[in-house]
Amino acid sequence: MAYGTTSRKIALVGIGKIARDQHLPALQASDDWDLAATVSRSGAIEGVEAHDDFDAFLTARPDVEVVSLCLPPQPRFDYAKKALLARRHVMLEKPPGQTLAEVHELERLAAKQGVTLYATWHSRMAAGVAAAKSRLVERVVQSLRITWKEDVRKWHPGQEWVFAPGGMGVFDPGINALSILTEILPEPVHLVSAELEFPENRDTPIAARLEFTGNVGAVFDWRQEGPQTWDIEIETNKGSIALRDGGARIEVDGAEQKLLDHPGEYPSLYARMAQLVANRESEVDLAPMIHVADAMTLGRRITVAPFEFDKETT
């Protein structure tokens, strides 16, 4: 089947906030995909065949050749492994797993089974990212500063998994910034130091400060209320470049640049997945996750006030 000539059947696994907010609209707007089934213990989508057991789904629907895993990272490896062993193509939400070793094993298994594995980084698909990357090719980066501050209560309401081991804490959004960083820089950088703030009652950090080679730094914080900040500011030998709103906008020397019409981050991911499946190729870039692993290794732990999703209990 040639890419783009007809739709492929796909299943969404894990019907939570990200699936409803991003994956479902992207699939509904795409001619490449036919949402044939969902798998979730607690959620469903009206008009779509629903399953609550993944093993039973794999047995019952061999015609659904692609699964998109929207689960939290903690259970994702087991689901992805089962899907790959059943020779299904697999699309992974970010981060692609709890650990680097998990994803390396999935990559090995996908190659052995002859199916596609796509570790997605949605922020790389933001409208301004490609423009920033192209402008940096002929410039020397003198400094780069990331400021990524948002309200965890708004974006992950009551989702305790983000503070559990494997949930990554503030690196769940922070890895989006790192995915852009590793996409746009002409030369790679590596982490040299980090400070990680852990609420005294939590297992993952709520804030982080990172310093990399090449005069690159980042500040992540999950406690920002009001306006949210997702900025990357770059000074070069030929002026300044800034990505705003998570890469949706680009400024050059302080002036906002007009961008071409953009389909959106998740529609772009699903278009890329369609290409990969058609070509029987995989795409697994772990550079953003390596930076997170390095931060957990090098980071100095700072204990801060306890955090609860319910403000009345803090």
Score class of each variant (00 low, 15 high):
Val90Tyr: 06
Val90Lys: 00
Arg76Lys: 10
Lys94Gln: 13
Leu58Gln: 01
Lys82Ala: 11
Glu93Ile: 00
Leu85Ser: 10
Lys94Cys: 08
Pro72Met: 06
Glu102Leu: 09
Glu65His: 09
Val67Arg: 02
Thr99Pro: 11
Leu69Gln: 05
Arg76Tyr: 03
Ala83Tyr: 02
Lys81Ser: 09
Val64Glu: 00
His89Tyr: 10
Gly97Asp: 12
Pro73Gly: 00
Ala83Phe: 03
His89Thr: 10
Glu102Cys: 08
Ser68Cys: 08
Pro73Met: 02
Phe77Gln: 05
Lys94Asp: 11
Glu102Thr: 06
Ala86Asp: 04
Arg76Pro: 00
Ala86Glu: 03
Val67Glu: 00
Lys82Asn: 06
Phe57Met: 02
Leu58Asn: 05
Arg61Val: 06
Met91Ala: 15
Pro62Lys: 12
Glu65Thr: 14
Val64Ala: 01
Ala80Asn: 08
Lys82Val: 02
Met91Gln: 15
Pro75Val: 05
Leu85Lys: 14
Leu69His: 01
Phe57Ile: 02
Phe77Lys: 10
Gly97Pro: 09
Pro72Asp: 01
Asp63Asn: 01
Met91Lys: 15
Arg88Asp: 03
Leu84Tyr: 06
Pro95Val: 14
Met91Trp: 15
Thr59Cys: 11
Val64Ile: 07
Lys82Cys: 00
Cys70Val: 10
Lys94Glu: 11
Glu102Arg: 09
Leu84Gly: 02
Gln98Glu: 15
Lys81Leu: 11
Arg76Gly: 00
Val66Lys: 03
Asp63Glu: 12
Pro96Ile: 13
Lys81Asp: 06
Thr59Ile: 14
Arg88Ser: 06
Ala80Ile: 08
Arg88Gln: 06
Asp63Trp: 07
Val90Phe: 10
Leu85Phe: 09
Pro75Asn: 04
Ala60Ile: 04
Pro72Gln: 04
Ala101His: 12
Leu92Phe: 10
Pro73Thr: 06
Val66Ile: 09
Leu71Trp: 03
Val64Ser: 03
Asp78Ala: 13
Leu71Val: 15
Gln74Ile: 07
Glu93Val: 00
Asp63Thr: 01
Ala86Met: 04
Ala101Leu: 13
Thr59Glu: 15
Arg87His: 14
Asp78Thr: 11
His89Ala: 11
Arg87Gln: 14
Glu65Ala: 15
Pro96Glu: 14
Pro95Asp: 14
Phe57Lys: 01
Pro72Gly: 00
Gln74Tyr: 05
Phe77Cys: 03
Val90Gln: 05
Ala80Val: 08
Ala60Phe: 02
Ser68Arg: 01
Lys82Trp: 06
Val66Met: 03
Ala83Trp: 04
Thr99Met: 12
Ser68Gly: 09
Lys81Gly: 05
Leu71Ile: 12
Tyr79Phe: 10
Pro75Tyr: 07
Arg61Lys: 10
Val64Phe: 01
Tyr79Gln: 00
Ser68Ile: 01
Ser68Ala: 13
Phe77Arg: 09
Ala83Val: 05
Ala83Asp: 04
Val66Ala: 08
Ala101Cys: 10
Pro62Leu: 12
Ala60Asp: 08
Lys82Gly: 05
Glu102Ser: 08
Leu85Gly: 08
Gln98Cys: 15
Glu93Tyr: 00
Val90Pro: 01
Asp78Trp: 07
Ala80Gly: 09
Gln98Asp: 13
Arg88Gly: 07
Pro73Cys: 01
Lys82Glu: 02
Phe57Gln: 00
Val90Arg: 03
Leu92Tyr: 10
Pro62Glu: 11
Arg88Ala: 07
Phe77Ile: 04
Val103Trp: 12
Ala86Ile: 06
Ala101Trp: 11
Gly97Phe: 12
Ser68His: 08
Val103Leu: 14
Ala80Pro: 04
Lys81Thr: 08
Lys94Thr: 08
Phe77Glu: 06
